[in-house]
Amino acid sequence: MPDPVRKSPLLQYYEAIEQASADMLEAARVGNWDRVVKLEGACAVLISQLKHAADHQRQLACEEVQVKSRIMQRILRNDAEIRILAEPWLEDLDNMLVHPGHNVLH
């Protein structure tokens, strides 16, 4: 659930990244790895935009730093769960690359 404080455009970037990470997690849960990869690209763009905006904006206020911290914790939890879900898929991919021609099914 997004935090109520939306004073800084920087927080809007963090919230957008959080939403993209939640969408990635949902896609990973259903095994839609193509969507995960596309959303990962969208996250990379948002992170780049955030870095650029951070160079040109004021520092976050204390309350905003707390909101940012909560958002970052949720993003990290999403990322950890995505990694756990991705492990079998990455192993299958690795096996296909190491042993071309062998079909690996789960």
Results as ranks from 00 to 15, higher is better:
residue 1 M to L: 08
residue 1 M to R: 10
residue 2 P to I: 05
residue 2 P to M: 05
residue 2 P to Y: 06
residue 3 D to I: 07
residue 5 V to T: 15
residue 5 V to R: 15
residue 5 V to K: 12
residue 5 V to F: 05
residue 7 K to C: 09
residue 7 K to M: 07
residue 9 P to Y: 00
residue 10 L to G: 05
residue 10 L to S: 02
residue 10 L to K: 03
residue 11 L to G: 08
residue 11 L to K: 08
residue 12 Q to H: 10
residue 12 Q to N: 11
residue 13 Y to P: 01
residue 15 E to W: 00
residue 16 A to K: 15
residue 17 I to Q: 10
residue 18 E to R: 14
residue 19 Q to I: 01
residue 19 Q to N: 15
residue 19 Q to A: 15
residue 20 A to I: 11
residue 20 A to D: 09
residue 23 D to I: 02
residue 25 L to G: 10
residue 27 A to Y: 03
residue 27 A to I: 06
residue 28 A to D: 09
residue 29 R to D: 09
residue 29 R to E: 11
residue 30 V to C: 05
residue 30 V to Y: 04
residue 31 G to K: 07
residue 32 N to F: 04
residue 32 N to W: 04
residue 33 W to I: 10
residue 34 D to S: 06
residue 34 D to H: 08
residue 34 D to R: 11
residue 37 V to L: 15
residue 38 K to N: 13
residue 39 L to V: 13
residue 40 E to Y: 02
residue 40 E to D: 14
residue 40 E to T: 13
residue 42 A to H: 09
residue 45 V to H: 02
residue 45 V to C: 00
residue 46 L to K: 08
residue 48 S to R: 03
residue 49 Q to A: 05
residue 50 L to P: 04
residue 50 L to T: 02
residue 51 K to T: 03
residue 52 H to V: 05
residue 53 A to N: 00
residue 55 D to V: 00
residue 56 H to L: 03
residue 57 Q to H: 05
residue 58 R to C: 01
residue 59 Q to L: 08
residue 65 V to K: 13
residue 65 V to R: 08
residue 65 V to A: 11
residue 66 Q to P: 00
residue 68 K to V: 06
residue 69 S to I: 00
residue 70 R to L: 09
residue 70 R to I: 06
residue 70 R to K: 14
residue 71 I to R: 03
residue 71 I to D: 01
residue 72 M to I: 07
residue 72 M to Y: 03
residue 73 Q to W: 01
residue 74 R to Q: 15
residue 75 I to L: 05
residue 77 R to Q: 13
residue 78 N to E: 07
residue 81 E to P: 03
residue 82 I to Y: 07
residue 83 R to Q: 13
residue 86 A to K: 10
residue 87 E to A: 15
residue 88 P to L: 06
residue 89 W to Y: 10
residue 89 W to A: 14
residue 89 W to K: 14
residue 90 L to F: 03
residue 93 L to Q: 05
residue 93 L to H: 06
residue 95 N to W: 08
residue 98 V to Y: 11
residue 99 H to V: 14
residue 100 P to F: 06
residue 100 P to T: 08
residue 101 G to K: 14
residue 102 H to G: 04
residue 102 H to A: 15
residue 102 H to R: 15
residue 103 N to H: 07
residue 103 N to M: 11
residue 106 H to V: 06
